[in-house]
């Protein structure tokens, strides 16, 4: 039992840091850039993706012995589309304003390649428990990336965070950060930062390592 729990923890941490879907694997870019013009939008999108990813990973993992190999991708897509429809209607009912701002990007979660990728690479080959932990880790990593991008763009682009003003009256907002170019450039620089971290780690050898890496390498 102890080993199972350790594995589950490894899967969870893996997605958040070492294999972060956005910064390391560069997946799920479309929603990543489109909805991160404010922290609230980013958080809502992250939560919706988390729900869809965890629920569909669980179902796919349960059905992994039933689904025939040849039509597996279509089956995954239909399972994902079902949960996205649920998420879409739920958001519409409870947070109509945010739902309106996210617009077409909630239904577009279906086409998020990160979700399909996890079903194919992980959920279809592992037990439901591990699949849920893996999905949670990946979704949290995705949320972390969305939120960091959303916070940077909201702070620089409108001088506020979660709608609260930060700098007072005299702040001149960088409107470009809220517009599409700001999204591309901010994500570009974030990736540069992550590359730099990796670069520095490689140069300093094995002395400095984030905790997620040690656990993975012990395995």
């Amino acid at each position: 039992m102890a080993t199972v729990e350790k594995d589950a923890n490894t899967e969870l941490i893996k997605g958040i840091w070492r294999d972060n879907p956005v910064f390391v694997q560069v997946l799920g870019m479309c929603p990543m850039l489109a909805v991160t013009n404010s922290a609230v939008n980013a958080l809502t999108m992250g939560a919706a993706t988390l729900f869809v990813l965890v629920a569909s990973s669980f179902i796919v993992s349960l059905l992994r012995k039933v689904i025939p190999k040849t039509v597996r991708l279509s089956c995954y897509i239909i399972i994902i589309a079902t949960f996205v429809t649920i998420a879409d209607f739920t958001l519409q009912a409870f947070v109509p304003l945010v739902h309106k701002e996210l617009g077409a990007f909630v239904p577009l979660i279906v086409a998020n390649c990160m979700i399909l990728g996890r079903q194919e690479a992980f959920a279809s080959r592992n037990t439901p428990k591990l699949a849920v932990f893996d999905a949670l880790g990946m979704a949290l990593g995705f949320m972390l990336a969305l939120l960091s991008l959303g916070c940077i763009r909201e702070i620089l682009g409108s001088g506020s965070l979660f709608g609260f003003s930060l700098f007072g009256e005299n702040f001149e907002p960088w409107v470009v950060m809220l517009l599409p170019p700001g999204g591309f450039i901010t994500l570009g620089f974030l990736l540069l930062f992550f590359n730099w971290l990796k670069f520095r780690k490689e140069q300093s050898g094995s002395t400095v390592k984030p905790p997620g890496n040690n656990a993975a390498e012990a395995k």
């Binding site: 170019p181 591309f184 994500l187 570009g188 990736l191």
Partner: peptide, 22 residues
């Protein structure tokens, strides 16, 4: 620079293109 090669550079180029399209 070696660490800027790949996606990071492409995203920044895309940002500039997007600015032009505005």
């Amino acid at each position: 620079p070696a660490m800027a090669r790949g996606t990071a550079l492409n995203l920044i180029i895309a940002g500039i293109l997007s600015l032009a399209f505005m």
